[in-house]
Simulated assay, not measured.
Amino acid sequence: MPRFMGFVKMEEGGGLPPQALFEAMDKYIGEQAGAGHFLDGGGLFGTEDAVNFVVKKGEVTRVDGPYAEAKEVVGGWALLQYDTLEEAIAGQQEFADLHATYWPECRMVATLRQISDEQPESSDA
Rank of each mutant, 00 (worst) to 15 (best):
V60P: 01
N52E: 09
F38A: 07
G30Q: 11
F53D: 01
F45I: 03
D124N: 15
E31Y: 05
L79A: 02
E86D: 15
D83L: 07
W103A: 13
Q92D: 02
F22Q: 06
Y28Q: 10
R107K: 15
S123Y: 13
S123F: 15
D64G: 02
A110E: 01
Q92L: 05
R113F: 01
P104K: 03
E87N: 12
E94I: 03
F45Q: 07
F4D: 03
V109F: 00
A50S: 03
V63R: 10
E11F: 08
Q81W: 00
A68L: 10
G46V: 03
L80V: 00
S116C: 05
Y82E: 00
D26L: 10
F45R: 08
G42I: 08
P2S: 07
L21E: 04
K9W: 11
T61N: 09
L44E: 11
A35S: 13
A125Q: 09
A110Y: 10
V74R: 07
K9S: 06
A70I: 08
P104V: 04
F53S: 04
T111F: 04
G14D: 04
A33M: 14
A70K: 03
E72G: 00
F7G: 00
G42S: 12
E48F: 02
Q93E: 11
I115S: 11
S116Y: 03
G65N: 00
K56E: 09
A24F: 15
G13N: 06
V8T: 12
S123V: 14
K56V: 08
D124I: 14
P66A: 02
E121M: 14
D97P: 01
G42F: 13
Q81M: 04
M25T: 12
A110S: 10
S123C: 14
P120H: 12
Q32D: 10
G42W: 05
E118V: 09
V55E: 00
D40G: 10
V51K: 15
H99I: 08
M10A: 09
Q92G: 00
V74W: 02
G43N: 12
Y102A: 01
R107V: 13
C106L: 12
R62I: 03
M5C: 06
E118R: 11
P2A: 06
L44D: 02
E11T: 01
A100G: 05
Y102V: 02
Q92E: 06
S122M: 14
V60Y: 09
A90I: 09
M1R: 09
H99M: 14
T61E: 14
A20V: 10
G75K: 06
D83I: 07
V73M: 12
G30Y: 12
F45T: 06
E23H: 10
G36Y: 13
E121W: 11
S123G: 15
P66T: 01
V55N: 02
M25R: 08
A100M: 06
F7W: 11
G15F: 08
T101L: 07
G30A: 09
V8S: 10
K71I: 09
Q93F: 06
P18K: 11
G13S: 03
P120T: 05
M108E: 11
E87D: 15
W103S: 11
P17W: 08
A50Y: 05
L98P: 14
G30V: 06
L21K: 09
K71E: 13
P120V: 10
P120Y: 08
L80C: 12
G14H: 11
W77H: 05
G65V: 08
